Computed example of a mutant assay.
Amino acid sequence: MQAGRRSLLTALALASTAPWLARARAAEPSATTSTAIEVEAGVYMMQGAPGEASAANLGRVGNAGFIVGRAGVIAVDTGTSFQHGEALLQAIAQVTDKPVRLALVTHARQEFLFGAAAFQARGIPVQMHRRAAQLMASRCDGCLKALQRELGEEAMRGTTVFRPDEVFDDSHAMDMIGRPVLVQYHGHSSGPGDIAVFDLRTGTLFGGGLIDHRRIPDVQDSDLEGWKRALAGLRTLKLSTVVPGHGTMTTPDVIDSVERYLLRLEARVAALLRQGAPLSEVPDAADLPEYRQWDQYDTIHRRNASIVFLRLERALMFGEPPTGAPR
């Protein structure tokens, strides 16, 4: 009797999650597809491939998406190249004939921003936080040259370092598409000027640089304490679905997953510093076995360990907060 009841409950649970799982499995990454997956009503994503940007994946390793309202569309992140921006616009056109009112770039990493030029070419304004735009301007000429070498001139044809049409400094609500959207800024976190985009109607969050799913978060531009505060702020939202910067769409539990990694990283590196480990040994000694299956463990995690070690060492020597990120 008890076994039968458990079987029934299991079946009901699977039935209730089946539509969500089907959408998640349908969002398979592809370097060439221009088809978007509807993750919630009127909210779509185009999923990037795992791994680093390469000729094989044409650099499409970051997620992008869009929100469709009764009066138009807002795009969230734009891809690694002009061609990716065009593919996103094509995906939007397959879903709706409503005008694209705006493209929001959530943070200054190459796989999210270079497609913006395709939007500007069609007269669609591009917005970024002021500090993210400043970081992009300071380094993305080098990013573009590296991508051209890695992906080839054809894949990057038409791609330029753009200037956003509009910048902003704080969180704000938007209703330009006849659907309330909240831009969330919690200060310097995963990067200076990193934002999240929240669709109030469905409870869907585009996490940008703040949230990756089963991929090692990159601390290079971060203020770790600010990142934790930002994650706490995201927990106050009524979330149903999260579209991360990298990885498959997922549940709000991903916020805890990201924070646990950051805490475990800090604790492990702090222990190595106390033990007197030299920097040269840190990437190997900072092994966190529970994260070995996450994308980019062998590259980003090792770099993260070195970055955090240097920040903690500097804080110990000079009595400074261990932020160490660009100002």
Rank of each mutant, 00 (worst) to 15 (best):
A53V: 07
S54T: 15
A55N: 08
A55P: 08
A56T: 15
L58C: 13
R60I: 09
R60A: 13
R60W: 14
V61W: 05
N63V: 01
N63C: 05
A64D: 03
A64R: 09
G65E: 02
V68D: 01
G69W: 05
R70P: 06
R70K: 13
A71N: 14
A71M: 03
G72I: 03
A75W: 01
V76M: 04
D77C: 07
G79S: 02
T80Q: 13
Q83E: 14
H84T: 08
A87M: 14
A87Y: 10
L88H: 07
L88G: 01
A91V: 08
V95K: 13
T96Q: 02
V100Y: 05
R101Q: 12
L102V: 04
L102Y: 09
L104W: 10
L104E: 12
T106E: 11
T106S: 15
R109G: 06
R109K: 10
F112C: 06
L113T: 15
A116S: 15
A118W: 07
A118R: 08
F119K: 02
F119H: 05
Q120T: 01
R122C: 04
R122Y: 02
G123N: 03
Q127M: 09
M128R: 07
H129S: 09
A132M: 08
L135D: 11
M136L: 13
C140V: 00
